[in-house]
């Protein structure tokens, strides 16, 4: 009798435990969604009043830290230059490397896994370390803080994301497709650049967009390397402003009008990131049509 009641007690305890943890899990999950909402709400609430046509069509007047007039056009253009430049550079280096790993090194699983491991480690390196390293490199090469230096450092920063993103797609291509291509007499280059590249197009697009998002949003690595200026750069050797830097510098200003610029820049940057996220979904969907499903 006693035994029996103990058993049922355990059963009810388990039932309450199940109930309790189900709620904890439910809350944990939706808290994450709520936080995202909170962040976006905060950014919009402070930023939308600060947004105006002037903000996105003019450069700051009278110095970015003290001048009350003008907008953040310099940072928008600078960020686009930097993002496009570094993404392009990383793509040009990253795509061949990813293809190489999966085509030429197909039979060398251990080597490829080692490379993947190194890339994952590189991905974990904090961007401030890239900044410090980039700065050292810059001094060594005699470069000044400039758009070019920023592009190089950011390209290094996003290279692991780019390669691993493309690599994830290539990894899952079955051997049968390689066999099909080789049996038609293609060389490895042709297999890689004509067949595999196309097959993994959705992954490439995602990787490029992801890298671009990372490139345009990074602050710590460009803090050392791009300098900051009120002007729009006209050549690679000039310093440039970027949106994250504009936010970072101007937010700490004691002048409210300058702070407004930071808030506005934050809205613009967030919007860009959101657009990228949506685009990557759309593109992935669209480019899937040529890929053969397995």
């Amino acid at each position: 009798m006693k035994k029996n009641s103990g058993k049922s007690f355990k059963k009810t305890r388990l039932k309450y435990e199940e109930y309790f943890f189900r709620w904890v899990m439910f809350l944990s999950n939706y808290i994450i969604a709520l936080i995202l909402g909170f962040i976006i709400y905060t950014i919009l609430k402070t930023g939308i009043p600060a947004l105006s046509l002037e903000m996105i069509t003019e450069t700051p007047k009278g110095g970015f830290y003290f001048g009350k007039e003008g907008g953040v056009l310099n940072a928008i253009i600078g960020s686009l230059y930097l993002g496009l430049g570094s993404t392009f550079l990383a793509f040009v280096v990253g795509l061949p490397v990813a293809l190489f790993m999966n085509t030429w090194l197909m039979n060398k699983k251990r080597t490829v896994n080692l490379v993947r491991f190194i890339l994952d480690l590189l991905w974990g390196v904090p961007s401030i370390v890239y900044g410090a390293f980039g700065f050292t490199l810059m001094v060594l090469l005699g470069l000044k803080a400039s758009l070019l230096a920023g592009i190089i450092v950011i390209a290094l920063l996003i290279l692991p994301i780019m390669i691993r993103g493309i690599d994830e797609g290539l990894k899952n291509i079955p051997k049968g497709l390689y066999e099909a291509s080789y049996s038609l007499g293609s060389t490895k280059s042709e297999t890689a650049f004509k067949v595999m590249m196309k097959q993994t197009m959705p992954c490439i697009i995602t990787a490029v967009l992801l890298s671009f998002g990372r490139a345009i949003g990074d602050t710590a690595a460009v803090l050392f390397t791009t300098g900051f200026t009120d002007n729009i750069p006209t050549s690679l050797s000039q310093p440039t402003a970027t949106l994250p830097l504009a936010i970072f510098f101007q937010l700490s200003s004691p002048i409210p009008e300058v702070k407004q610029r930071a808030y506005a820049a934050a809205v613009i940057l967030t919007a860009i990131i959101l657009v990228i996220s949506i685009l990557s979904r759309v593109f992935t969907y669209r480019y899937k049509k040529h890929s053969i499903k397995f």
């Binding site: 999950n29 994450i32 905060t42 992801l210 936010i247 970072f248 937010l251 990131i273 996220s277």
Partner: peptide
Amino acid sequence: IVLKMMQPVIDILAGIPSVIYGVWGVVA
């Protein structure tokens, strides 16, 4: 469907630049 809805949330959270988190921290 919940996972399908959460995936973009997670992706966007991962994609938001750290400086935006900074602004959020300072303001909120």
